Simulated assay, not measured.
Amino acid sequence: MPALPVPAPLRRTAARAADVLRRAAERCQGSPRILDLLAALSCLALMGLDLPGLASADNSLNGLTAALVLAAGAGTLLLRRRLPWVPYLTALLFIGWLHELTLIQFALYSLGRFRGRRAAVLAVAGYLLYALLLFHLPGWPAMRAETFSGFLGLVVPIGVLAAAVGIAAFRQDLVRELDARRSQDAVHSAVEAERTSVARDVHDFVGRELTLLTVRSEVLAVRARGKPYEKDFDELAETARRAHLVLNDIIVHRGERAATPGVEGLPGLAEESGRAGSPVRLSVDPAVAELSPLRQAAVYRVVQECLTNAAKHAPGEVIEVAIAAEGPRLRITVSNALPERLPRRAPVSAGSGTASMAERVRGLGGTLTAVRCPEGYRVEATLPRG
């Protein structure tokens, strides 16, 4: 049965509604949910133009029922990003029941846009075979193509063009994402270049001071031969020499070999801290030895920075270090009491050690908290084991 003519006021109202929706879409390009809602409303507005014909062509529908059915079908477009096959199957139902071709255009576009070329081609093939079958069955409306050539000129372009536009939008999304990643890589490269420049400056200036400290300590050790504090000067010279070697290892020879030890180096850290006057009680879960080298290096660096901070701000206090594997997470806890008397001189500190620790831990998907509590100072970090 041919569709009833659409009244002019209804056409003007639908045109104005489509224009309003288009302007709203331009203002809300950054909100996917709003865009999906606008797509559903646009589809409903276009299908509303066929409402008089649908109500008269199917005796089971009146004007209100047809409007509700079309609204339900258009509502499936709200799922087009996560479940684009739902509006597609609904559109096929509408073709077989109501011979409505508007929803299938939105559904094919959504499949091409959010699932790519393969899904879109498969969906177009299914749509064409299904429509061709319905065309050869009794009841296909003349307004949707009275002859086979009319079918090929109307039904086929509707599906092919909608899917093609969706595929083009999908590729454009990929291009934009690639450009964003390239920009991000450029920023990372710039940051790495700046870090390299800073590292060279650190090596040049700090390395010079460490060299002078090493030489001066060795001279003082020679002058103190046979005296009780000769050993202290020897240890100071050895510490400065080792610090210079570590500086070279990190900055000059970075990348040539792994400079950061794993959990096997924690006892050495504890022993070194004890010699410096801050004894360490170390507890390490045996399962920690099974972690990847990257995570073991992170554990080592966190403990090393915590021991350094404790030696600066709470010299002489006992430091508790506990590393435990708790299910899929690894927990690092370092705590120490605070001294009753503050040091006569404030320790030299740039305040970036804790921030550096937190950045390293977050980079591996973990968390880090450092708080001052009545018992003293406590640092707690968690890392994923896998």
Score class of each variant (00 low, 15 high):
residue 249 D to F: 04
residue 194 E to G: 09
residue 236 L to E: 05
residue 359 E to I: 04
residue 68 L to R: 05
residue 58 D to L: 02
residue 174 L to T: 06
residue 317 E to N: 08
residue 170 F to A: 13
residue 296 Q to T: 00
residue 21 L to V: 05
residue 113 R to Q: 14
residue 125 A to V: 15
residue 294 L to W: 09
residue 209 E to P: 01
residue 193 A to I: 00
residue 246 V to Q: 12
residue 214 T to K: 10
residue 88 Y to F: 15
residue 138 P to L: 11
residue 151 F to S: 07
residue 297 A to D: 13
residue 282 L to A: 12
residue 207 G to Q: 01
residue 2 P to Q: 13
residue 251 I to D: 00
residue 356 S to D: 14
residue 183 S to R: 15
residue 208 R to N: 01
residue 234 D to W: 06
residue 210 L to I: 02
residue 22 R to K: 08
residue 262 G to K: 10
residue 207 G to D: 00
residue 289 A to N: 10
residue 364 L to K: 07
residue 39 A to Y: 03
residue 15 A to E: 09
residue 221 A to P: 00
residue 346 A to W: 11
residue 357 M to Q: 06
residue 111 L to V: 15
residue 61 L to A: 06
residue 383 L to D: 05
residue 330 L to Y: 02
residue 365 G to P: 14
residue 247 L to S: 10
residue 338 L to T: 14
residue 253 H to T: 04
residue 62 N to V: 03
residue 150 G to A: 09
residue 286 P to E: 09
residue 100 E to A: 11
residue 331 R to S: 10
residue 272 E to N: 11
residue 335 S to Q: 11
residue 357 M to C: 13
residue 243 A to G: 08
residue 364 L to N: 07
residue 176 R to N: 15
residue 383 L to Q: 09
residue 62 N to W: 03
residue 215 V to D: 15
residue 40 A to M: 03
residue 281 R to Q: 14
